[in-house]
Measured scan of single mutants.
Amino acid sequence: EHQTACDSYWTSVHPEYWTKRHVWEWLQFCCDQYKLDTNCISFCNFNISGLQLCSMTQEEFVEAAGLCGEYLYFILQNIRTQG
């Protein structure tokens, strides 16, 4: 039997508790949902936990993801305040 992915999907966990996999799933979702250019995102810069992600500043997001960084930063802040 296969496990259902939704059990541990990033949407069901507060961002501060995300694993590295959750972070990448979220990035992929943002790219799909908001039509962000994946080429401007250095995924290696996001090989981090949710706690590390949440402690990043807006400037660090821009450094890590170029033009997309600002969008990603605000998307994350939205999730954190709603969560």
Rank of each mutant, 00 (worst) to 15 (best):
E1N: 15
E1V: 06
H2T: 11
H2R: 13
H2N: 10
H2S: 09
H2C: 12
Q3N: 15
T4H: 13
T4C: 13
A5M: 11
A5P: 13
A5I: 10
A5W: 07
A5Q: 13
C6F: 15
D7N: 09
D7A: 08
S8P: 11
W10R: 14
T11I: 07
S12F: 03
V13C: 08
V13H: 01
V13W: 01
V13T: 06
H14Q: 15
H14N: 11
P15I: 00
P15K: 00
E16N: 10
Y17L: 11
Y17R: 14
W18V: 00
T19I: 01
T19Q: 10
T19K: 08
T19L: 00
T19V: 00
K20G: 03
K20I: 10
K20S: 10
K20T: 07
H22I: 00
H22P: 02
H22M: 11
V23Y: 04
V23N: 07
V23F: 04
V23G: 01
V23D: 01
V23A: 00
V23M: 00
W24P: 00
W24E: 10
W24V: 14
E25I: 04
W26K: 04
L27S: 03
L27V: 13
L27Q: 02
L27C: 00
Q28T: 12
Q28H: 15
Q28K: 12
Q28W: 09
F29C: 06
F29M: 06
C30R: 03
C30S: 08
C30M: 07
C30K: 03
C30Q: 02
C31E: 04
C31V: 12
D32S: 08
D32C: 08
D32N: 09
D32R: 13
D32M: 08
Q33H: 13
Q33S: 12
Q33K: 15
Q33N: 14
Q33Y: 09
Y34M: 06
Y34V: 02
Y34I: 00
Y34S: 05
K35G: 13
K35H: 08
K35P: 05
L36Y: 06
L36A: 00
L36Q: 01
T38W: 11
T38S: 13
T38N: 12
N39M: 05
N39H: 15
C40V: 09
C40W: 04
C40A: 12
I41Q: 03
I41Y: 04
S42H: 11
S42V: 06
F43L: 10
F43R: 11
C44G: 14
C44F: 08
C44P: 14
C44N: 14
C44Y: 10
C44R: 13
N45W: 05
N45L: 08
F46I: 05
F46V: 01
F46T: 03
N47I: 02
N47L: 04
N47R: 10
N47T: 05
I48R: 05
I48F: 08
S49D: 14
S49I: 02
S49L: 01
S49K: 04
S49M: 05
L51R: 14
L51H: 14
L51C: 11
Q52W: 04
Q52L: 05
Q52I: 07
L53C: 01
L53M: 03
C54K: 06
C54N: 00
C54F: 01
C54S: 03
S55E: 12
M56N: 00
M56G: 03
M56I: 00
M56A: 00
M56Q: 00
T57P: 05
T57N: 11
T57G: 07
T57V: 03
T57S: 12
Q58S: 07
E59Q: 10
E59G: 10
E59N: 14
E60R: 04
E60H: 09
E60L: 02
E60P: 03
E60C: 04
F61K: 03
V62E: 09
V62G: 07
V62F: 06
V62L: 05
V62C: 11
E63M: 08
A64H: 09
A64D: 08
A65R: 01
A65I: 04
A65V: 04
A65K: 01
G66T: 03
G66I: 00
G66Q: 02
L67S: 15
L67K: 15
L67G: 15
L67H: 15
L67C: 14
L67A: 15
C68A: 13
C68F: 09
G69L: 02
E70N: 10
E70W: 04
E70K: 12
E70R: 11
E70P: 10
E70V: 04
Y71G: 11
Y71I: 14
L72P: 04
L72C: 05
L72N: 00
Y73C: 01
Y73P: 00
Y73Q: 02
Y73N: 01
Y73M: 04
F74A: 15
F74H: 14
F74Y: 12
I75V: 12
I75G: 10
I75Y: 13
I75A: 15
L76A: 03
L76F: 09
L76T: 00
Q77Y: 02
Q77E: 09
N78R: 13
N78D: 15
N78P: 02
N78T: 09
N78G: 11
N78S: 11
I79T: 08
R80L: 12
R80N: 05
R80K: 13
R80Y: 03
R80V: 07
R80G: 03
T81W: 06
T81V: 10
T81R: 13
T81N: 14
Q82P: 07
Q82A: 11
Q82K: 11
G83K: 13
G83D: 11
